[in-house]
């Protein structure tokens, strides 16, 4: 922290400036972490939950759904369509209605 203060104290009011002696060098070696996965989060139970689990959870946790505002069926349909057509999720056409109905029932408004 003392080093931080020294370096910061040298900063001027302009933008990027030359650094003082003792500044950090580019890092060497590995950094590694272990991400905690879905930290126990899961979709609510209900009709269609299997289709939601099988398709949505491949790329993201259920919190992507549960933290959204209360969306309409049209909005949920647009989201699922975007996942398939824009983000390339291989969602079978015949699974789409079940997923949209599930999301609307559990996380949306009719």
């Amino acid at each position: 922290m003392k080093r931080t203060l020294l370096v910061l104290a040298c900063l001027g009011a302009l933008g990027a400036s030359a650094v003082a002696a003792g500044t950090p060098a580019p890092p060497k070696g590995s950094a590694s972490i272990s991400l905690p996965g879905d930290i126990g989060m899961a979709f609510k139970p209900g009709p269609g939950v299997g289709a939601a689990q099988a398709n949505c959870l491949t790329c993201h946790s259920s919190a992507y759904v549960s933290t959204q505002p209360v969306l309409s069926k049209a909005q949920w349909a647009a989201e699922v369509t975007k996942m398939k057509n824009v983000y390339g999720a291989p969602i079978a056409d015949d699974a789409m209605p079940a997923i949209v109905d599930y999301l609307t029932t559990q996380y949306g408004k009719p």
Binding site: P36, D38, H60, S61, A63
Partner: peptide
């Protein structure tokens, strides 16, 4: 999360 103090989790994955 790794290298972090407790923070507000919007989504854990990503």
């Amino acid at each position: 999360f790794p290298q972090k103090r407790p923070m507000i989790v919007l989504t854990p994955r990503p």
